[in-house]
Design a protein around this nucleic acid. Structure first.
Length: 268
DNA sequence: TCTCAGGGGCGAT
DNA sequence: ATCGCCCCTGAG
């Protein structure tokens, strides 16, 4: 496997937490994960300050790894900027090494459509099931696995087949959005909301996790809860009012700040 | 067995 | 701007 210096990377949280549903922990003792995307699988292991990795079917695709893990990001500088807030500082101390990934656009969109009013275990189950039914096979070290379905496959799939993965009412959103993704490019937050099943919250998820927006916030139930609880914001603010407040209070790195707070507040 | 909320969004008013 | 509804799962 390829060896990459990657200190301060909380793989448990960054790969299995709130921002990605692609990863499966294969072997906890070796910190060994497989990530199933639409056109490739990624294999990683973590030991000390290093990540060992391989990509499939195209081997050694460092350009992809570099972008996905945001290897060129100045993490220390971001910590310094968002750590000026006392709650973020505490979050960084208690749940350290949280980072943001930059994942492929279609994948994030289709994954987060599934996430609406859904629990994380259910989301994961649905995504694995959907992959088994409609995704391509990949072989890794002699074992068979399934990628997340390609956008064009979901666009052409029968709703009833998509429903087999227990996504429920989100099945029609998946199909329609897949078609929309094939028809045009979505590069800004407001455009994202044209996608079926994508409103304010999921548009912000896509903006952060796929487009790399450093100063957005998906105001979900948890974020709203800690904004009211910790920062004394009124419970009655609109989505946009919460979002504006956050964007003005974390030195331009609200995406990172709220990711720290989210992962910390959730397990606190 | 039943109820209900869970990382929202849609469509009708 | 608000509200009922959407499908499924696990917790109580």
């Amino acid at each position: 496997m390829n060896k990459q210096y990657l200190p301060k990377f909380n793989h448990r949280i960054n790969l299995l937490g709130g921002q990605s549903f692609s990863w499966v922990l294969i072997n906890p003792k070796e910190n060994h994960y497989l990530g199933f995307l639409q056109d490739r699988a990624i294999e990683v292991k973590f030991n000390k300050d290093y990540m060992y990795w391989q990509s499939y079917p195209q081997k050694d695709d460092f350009d992809f790894i570099k972008e996905y893990f945001r290897l060129e990001e100045d993490y220390e500088r971001i910590l310094e900027l968002v750590g000026q807030d006392k709650f973020v500082k505490k979050a960084i101390e208690e749940v350290p090494n949280v980072r943001l990934l930059k994942q492929p656009m279609d994948l994030v969109t289709l994954n987060f459509i599934i996430s609406s009013v859904n629990s994380i275990p259910s989301i994961r189950k649905s995504i694995r099931a959907l992959s088994r039914y409609l995704g391509e096979k990949v072989k890794i070290r002699g074992e068979k696995y399934y990628l997340f379905p390609r956008t064009e496959v979901l666009a052409d799939a029968d709703i009833s087949d998509i429903m087999k993965s227990k996504v429920g009412f989100r099945a029609k959103y998946l199909k329609k959005s897949a078609k929309q993704l094939l028809e045009s490019n979505f590069t800004e937050r407001d455009e994202l909301k044209q996608l079926c099943g994508v409103g304010d919250k999921i548009a912000d998820c896509i903006s952060i996790f796929a487009l790399g927006d450093d100063n957005a916030t998906p105001v979900d139930r948890w974020v709203k809860r800690f904004l009211v609880d910790l920062y004394d914001l009124s419970e009655d603010l609109t989505y946009n009012e919460f979002a504006v407040w956050v964007s003005e209070n974390f030195n331009g790195y609200a995406s990172w700040a709220t990711q720290f707070l989210f992962e910390w507040y959730r397990v606190r």
